[in-house]
Simulated assay, not measured.
Amino acid sequence: MDIQRGEDRSIHPAPTEHFTGDVQIEWLFAAPDPARVNGVRVTFQPGARTAWHTHPLGQTLYITEGKGRVQRDCGAVEEVGVGDVVMFAPGEKHWHGATSDSTMTHIAVQERLDGSHIDWLDKVTDAEYEGEA
Rank of each mutant, 00 (worst) to 15 (best):
L61T: 02
A51Y: 07
I107R: 06
L61V: 10
D101E: 06
D101F: 07
T105S: 13
A51Q: 11
D101C: 14
L113R: 15
S116T: 14
M104G: 00
I118N: 03
Y129M: 07
H96R: 04
L28W: 01
W95P: 03
S100Q: 08
D33V: 15
G83R: 13
G6K: 12
V86L: 01
L61N: 02
V80F: 07
A30S: 15
T105G: 01
Q45C: 12
A48H: 08
R49N: 08
T50R: 03
P46Y: 00
E92A: 15
S102Q: 10
F19S: 08
W120I: 11
P13T: 09
V37L: 14
R5V: 04
C74E: 09
D126W: 06
Q110R: 12
T54C: 10
A89Q: 14
T20V: 15
R5K: 14
M104L: 10
A76G: 06
I11D: 04
V80W: 09
V42N: 04
P56W: 01
E130G: 11
E26V: 09
G39V: 10
G115C: 06
G68E: 02
A133P: 03
G47A: 05
E132G: 08
M87F: 07
W95H: 03
P13R: 15
P56K: 01
D122W: 15
P34D: 00
D114P: 12
I25D: 01
E26H: 04
H96L: 13
E17V: 09
I118S: 06
E78I: 15
P32M: 13
T16K: 15
R36H: 06
G97Q: 02
R72V: 14
Q4L: 09
L121C: 02
E79P: 04
P13I: 04
V37P: 00
K123I: 06
R36K: 11
V77C: 12
V77G: 01
E26W: 08
R9G: 04
I3W: 03
S10P: 02
G58P: 03
G83F: 01
H94D: 02
Q71E: 05
G39Y: 05
P56L: 02
E26R: 15
R49V: 11
G97P: 08
D126E: 13
A51R: 09
S100W: 00
C74N: 10
A76F: 07
V23N: 07
